[in-house]
Nucleic acid binder design. Structure first.
Length: 655
DNA sequence: AGCACGCCGACT
DNA sequence: GTCGGCGTGCTC
């Protein structure tokens, strides 16, 4: 017997091992096992079980799981993810079945004959220590012991995530404000859990959206509401794991890792604000949890509700293409909102404070809550030497640098790398560095100078968790200034009287083919969360935008999708960014040749004209953008994956 | 990923 | 003459 095993290493292949007789009766695909590898012991996952024998192969050491921890739908989801995100299956499985999944301390043994009486009530961890894994496998097979989890007391058995055939639900894209979405979710969840099936609900974060929905759902459904993911204890994470797989009538809330949570009898998946960046997993296996949740629902034939005030173009098209019911409850830039909007022109971006201060002053006198939005979180960006007028760019990728004053460093907006701030031009040595754009840190500092007695909170991605606590204590009647980025839109139902947008139109230039879409989403989500009575834009005169352009939702989406189709971009084509480090002594030339060879071998780009040219040679790396159909591309790119100094990003936003 | 092998610079 | 730097390659 030979098994092909996926290992958590960045190589797009499986490794074969023979199975010794004592383990033969127990092997099944998707069980975890221990194998010798490179003079070490690794945890791998069985992908296929085959007949035959090969004395050249090593033997597996031990099987870990008594049965696979993923059901058929999740196994299919892992396989699909591996191809869709060009990540070796071993790394996908490492995410789906992480070491933190501490199953055995929470599973107990029950004895069914005299021989095993001494094992009764022991946890699996202790029993394994006492008599070894192999013996327990045999005892269980002949029925001398059974397993149950400590949380529910129910039998610990393979989970089957099949749909419960609830025909009251159907796939739906719900576009509306947060109140209407919440009500819609509550009604849908209610009818789902009434018939004892489970609901999986994805939320963009834990501290803001997470607590908002958790509170609202708990009010209605009590302890049937569970959270799965970080931001909680290891034990309660395991409790959710066991309850979701054995019990029914539960709602599991989570952000990313919950898309791989096995669940019994599911009847609904809900994705809240799928367009949020927080659904993107940036390290290791890079994926979008919203996209995976949609796929999981499709694979398991489970109805899905996607709710947002401003869905992404990808989801809008996916929903239309797959026959979702399109419910347009409310578009927040409707003619009614038009009356609340004032657009003020600025002569230059530096002039804004003179115009902003009187507005804030008037608001504070009236005890208002005012939110000031600015696209950037840092102190200043678009740095430029005063002497030679040359811009300061990221030495690595030539991206725009942002200056963080408090931290005293420069951070690249493109690659995220940080550098200490030297206050010196690399071209001429000049020491006067100017910045042409300002961000939240600067605005907050200046407003504090102007209004030293006012309560001013800075809301950015990094400070959100901390500031949420202070915010909850703030009485609704006292004046407050919130200065922040997109993160302001996480403050669900935090009502402000005024919303001021400084340089919102700048989002348009912040790079990537999705920038127009992001601009609209940012605005709509701010309106969704903060429900402002007045909306005041300060826009640079030459970039001033006509707000009437955004009032017709269908027209807006139709036009944007038309452009994407014409340009052959997502969602009509898959796009991948391949980056090659110039570290090697050949400056990456050899790697590029190998990539071209692999693409050619796979039958892609047969004539040299369609062969991708290297789009950009930057200081430290080559950039290559590939667009095309998923199947041939991902097959070829998985081969590219293992090459040294090569990074592959699926659906890159910055192209 | 880790770990070994291999080919060029500063040391007793 | 060697020790060790990391670039390159392989792992059933």
């Amino acid at each position: 017997m030979i098994v092909d095993v996926a290992l958590p290493i960045p190589a797009a292949k499986t490794f074969s091992y023979t199975v010794p007789d004592r383990w033969k009766p127990f092997v099944e695909p998707f069980m975890r096992l221990k194998v010798p590898f490179h003079n070490r012991i690794h945890t791998g996952v069985v992908i296929t079980v085959g007949q035959g024998d090969d004395p050249g192969l090593k033997e597996i050491l031990e099987i870990i799981d008594f049965f696979p921890l993923v059901d058929e739908t999740l196994a299919a989801l892992c396989n699909w993810s591996s191809r869709y995100y060009v990540t070796p299956i071993g790394l996908v499985l490492k995410y789906a079945l992480p070491p933190t999944l501490n199953v055995e301390p929470h599973v107990m043994l029950r004895a069914h004959d005299h021989e095993t009486l001494h094992l009764n009530g022991l946890t699996l961890t202790k029993a394994v220590k006492l008599c070894g894994r192999e013996a327990l496998f045999r005892l269980r097979q002949r029925g001398s012991i059974s397993l149950h989890d400590v949380f529910t007391g129910e039998s610990f058995l393979p989970v089957s995530g099949t749909s419960t055939d609830d025909h009251t639900q159907q796939n739906r894209l719900f576009i509306g404000d947060v109140r209407s979405r919440l009500n819609h979710y509550l009604e849908s969840i209610s009818s789902a859990i009434d018939n004892q099936s489970n609901v999986l609900m994805l939320l963009p974060d834990h501290y803001a959206a997470g607590t908002y929905f958790k509170r609202a759902l708990t009010e209605r459904f009590g302890d049937r509401v569970l959270w799965y993911g970080s931001g909680t204890t290891a034990r309660s994470r395991m409790e959710t794991f066991h309850r979701a797989r054995t019990q029914g009538g539960r709602v599991v809330l989570g952000n990313k890792s919950c898309v791989f949570l096995p669940m019994r009898g599911q009847s609904l998946v809900i994705i809240e604000r799928e367009e949020e960046d927080e659904y993107r997993n940036e390290q290791g296996f890079k994926f979008n949890a919203g996209t995976l949740a949609l796929k999981r629902a499709a694979l398991g034939r489970i109805p899905v509700i996607v709710g947002s005030a401003s869905p992404s173009l990808d989801t809008y098209r996916y929903a239309e293409y797959n026959g979702f019911q399109m419910v347009k409850n409310k578009w927040l830039l409707d003619p009614e909102s038009r009356e609340k909007i004032t657009v003020a022109g600025l002569t230059s971006s530096a002039a804004f404070l003179e115009e902003l201060v009187p507005v804030i002053k008037a608001g504070l006198i009236e005890n208002q809550r005012i939110a000031v939005f600015t696209p950037r979180k840092d102190y200043g960006s678009s740095l430029m030497c005063h002497d030679c007028k040359k811009p300061l760019l990221c030495p690595d990728c030539q991206g725009v640098l942002g200056y963080e004053k408090e931290a005293g460093r420069l951070t690249c907006s493109l690659c995220g790398k940080s550098f200490s701030y030297e206050e010196e031009c690399s071209h001429c040595g000049g020491t006067i560095i100017r910045f042409l754009r300002v961000g939240a840190e600067y605005v907050a500092e200046k407003l504090t100078d102007y209004f030293p007695d006012a309560a001013i909170l800075k809301i950015t991605g990094d400070s959100l968790k901390r500031e949420m606590r202070r915010l909850k204590k703030s009485p609704a009647q006292s004046p407050l200034i919130l200065v922040g980025t997109q993160s302001l839109s996480k403050l669900y139902e935090f009502h402000v009287q005024q919303l001021v947008l400084l340089g919102w139109e700048d989002l348009r230039k912040m790079g990537g083919y999705r920038s127009d879409e992001k601009m609209v989403q940012t605005l709509i989500n701010l309106l969704d969360a903060l429900t402002p009575e007045k909306i005041l834009f300060f826009m640079e005169r030459k970039h001033r935008m006509d707000m009437d352009l955004f009032m017709d939702m269908e027209g807006l989406y139709r036009q944007a999708l038309g452009k994407r189709q014409e340009a052959d971009f997502p969602p009509y084509r898959r796009a991948f960014l391949v980056e090659i480090d110039k570290k090697g002594k050949d400056r990456g030339d050899k790697t590029i040749k190998r990539i071209r060879d692999i693409l050619h071998e796979e039958g892609l780009f047969e004539n040299s004209e369609s062969m991708p040219v290297l789009e950009k040679s930057m200081a430290q790396k080559w950039r290559l953008v590939l667009r095309g159909e998923l199947e041939p591309l991902s097959r070829a790119l998985l081969k590219v994956y293992g090459l040294p100094h090569v990074q592959i990003e699926a659906d890159p936003p910055h192209i």
